[in-house]
Structures are given as structure tokens and as C-alpha cells.
Simulated assay, not measured.
Amino acid sequence: MERLQIANLPTPIQKLDRLGEELGVNLYLKRDDFTGMEISGNKVRKLEFSVADALQQGCDTLITAGGIQSNHCRATAAVAAKLGLGCDLIIRGEIPNHFEGNLFMNKALGARVHLISPEESREEKMDEIVENLKSQGHKPYLIPVGASNAVGSLGYAAAIEEITEQENKLGIHYDTVVIAVGSGGTYAGLWYANQKQGAKRKIHGFAVDNSADTFVETITEILKEMYLNDGLAAPEEYKDILINDQYIGTGYAKSTHEELAFIMKTSREHGFLLDPVYTGKAFYGMVSEIQKGHFKDANNILFIHTGGILGWTHKQREMALKSI
């Protein structure tokens, strides 16, 4: 499959010595928030494959969708601007009073932003935009939410190869990998490459919106398509898709005082920033589970920081500052 080279790779791995010592584990952080600025985070890895496919098909406009603070939408807008492509974003959620965080970045990067309410259908809106663009002589390319399909997920299949090379150089094996799960494609790519390698890593995902059952179903469907595209025999059952949905809190892109206090404490004491939508919830969930003794079988834990710093809103910043 064709691939663009637009991310700053490989991203470094840092050992969190003091936090790991506090928790009684070997804890490492893979800085996928270092993949770039406008295109920072995990989404650019997926877009390297999705947008390459769009260009190969001769498309001139990217269309995708996401929530109010979607990192994927912002990254898509940035890649489109970089390559001179049109970009239409369907943003669904409670309509905000102000354009801030990723929503502001979408506009700054020149994307056409279509805000719809939670009750409206993203799919219907995307179909409408596709037809309008075609009638104007454009050739649009549809990217699903989070670029979470068989093509986009190749980005994190490639990330496993990158992690393996880093393991070899560092002389260490990460038996446990932890990520936030918002649409399922990052998890699917990691799981797929891990299985192809015959590796025994456990991939733990912490849901930020939907239930574990919903994500297992979504990830399984992506995996089936990945095996099909590779011409490989798919497994009869998809075991060990490990999704924890106990740390969603009050919902997608919504924060509790406890979550934000944890993020602020982590940044002050350990010198790295998490976001309130994705990595903050997942890192909080992971630390909580470690403290409960649920990661006792893990020798070396690798948390993938999938970015999202641009997603902080005014309300979340105010709540976070009150927690100090």
C-alpha cells in the first residue's frame, strides 16, 4: 500500500522512572504527540495511508467527520492544506458558543466546517456534501471517523514495526501496550501487526466514549477487512481485544474535576501534558488499574501518547486551574 511521509517518525520512547517507581511498575511513554504540530498525534500515522490512497485515486477533496474536539478532523485539515487539497469536515456535537481548541484549528487551516447537532446523521451530511462536490466537478475522498478502517489502520500496524525496532535497539520488550480508544482504528492496527508478528504483547485500550462491546465489534470488523485486503486467512475468533470502558466519565470531550486534577498533578510532577478528551482519560484509567493491582503480570508497560493537546477548551482549562 502506498504511504505518504508526513509524520516526524520514529517518535521517541521515554521511561517514566519516578512515576513507575511510585506505581511499582516499569512504565514507558511513546511520544506520538511529537509527530508534528498541526498534524500532531496518532491520526497522522493513519492519514499517511488514507491520503496516499486518495491521491492515488486522483481525488482533490478530503471529507471526514468527528466530534467537536476531534484530533482527526484537525489533522485531516492540516494535511489537506499541506497538499493543496480541499477539505470538508462534518463536526457533530453540542454546538459551541466559541470556536476554540481543535475546532478553531480546523478553521485556521482552511477547512470548510459543517456543524451538526447530535441528533443529525453524519452519514447523510457526508453524502450531501459528496454530491455537491461532484456536481461542481470535484472528486472527493471519504475518510471515516478517525480514519478507522482497514486503510487508515495500517498506520498503527506500521507503528508496531517501529516499536519492535526500538525494542531491539533498547534491549527491552514491551509486553503491555496501552492506548486511548476513540474510534477503534489505532487499536486495530496495533492488534493486527502484533498478531502477524506472533508477538505476545497485550494491547489494552481505554474507551473514551462508547462501550467495550461496541468497540470490540467495531475493531473486529476493521480486522476482518485488513486480513481480506492482505489476502490472509482471518482467525476464526478474535481473542484478547482488551477494552476497558470504566473511565469514560461524563462522556466524550466532557471532563470531571477528578480527571482534570489528575492531569494537572501528572503534568506538574512528571513534566508531560495529557489532553482531557483522549489521553487524560486513558492514562487516568491505566494508573487507576495499576493501583488496583490489575497489571500485575506486566513487566514493561508502554503507554502511547496519541496527542490531543490542542483540544483543551476554555471550560476545561478553567476547571483544571481550579484543581491546583
Rank of each mutant, 00 (worst) to 15 (best):
V151D: 10
V181R: 08
K125N: 03
G189S: 07
E131Q: 11
Q197R: 14
G152F: 03
V216A: 13
Y252V: 06
Y141F: 15
L142R: 11
Q166R: 11
E128H: 13
G137I: 07
G249Y: 02
I203Y: 04
N194F: 02
K202W: 06
Y141P: 08
N210R: 15
H173E: 12
T220N: 05
A261L: 01
E131H: 04
K254F: 08
T220E: 11
S211N: 02
D240Q: 12
S211G: 04
I143T: 09
A212P: 06
E259P: 00
M264W: 13
V216S: 10
T186Y: 11
A253H: 10
G198T: 04
I160A: 02
T250S: 08
T164P: 02
Y192F: 15
Q136D: 11
P144Q: 01
E259M: 15
N149K: 03
G198H: 02
F262S: 12
S255A: 15
T256D: 01
G185I: 09
E131C: 00
D209H: 13
L260H: 14
E217D: 15
T176M: 07
A193F: 04
T220R: 08
I179A: 01
G185T: 09
K200C: 09
Y192C: 10
G249W: 05
F215T: 01
I179Q: 03
I172D: 01
K169C: 01
G155D: 01
G137F: 09
D213Y: 06
A150T: 09
I222G: 01
E258M: 04
Y187P: 07
V181N: 08
S153C: 09
K254Y: 07
S148I: 01
I222Y: 06
N244H: 12
A234T: 00
L154Y: 05
Y192N: 10
K139T: 14
E161A: 06
S255D: 11
D245L: 05
E237V: 12
P235E: 13
F206P: 11
E259V: 07
E123A: 09
L142A: 05
Q195N: 09
E131K: 12
G205S: 01
A180I: 01
H204Q: 13
T256E: 08
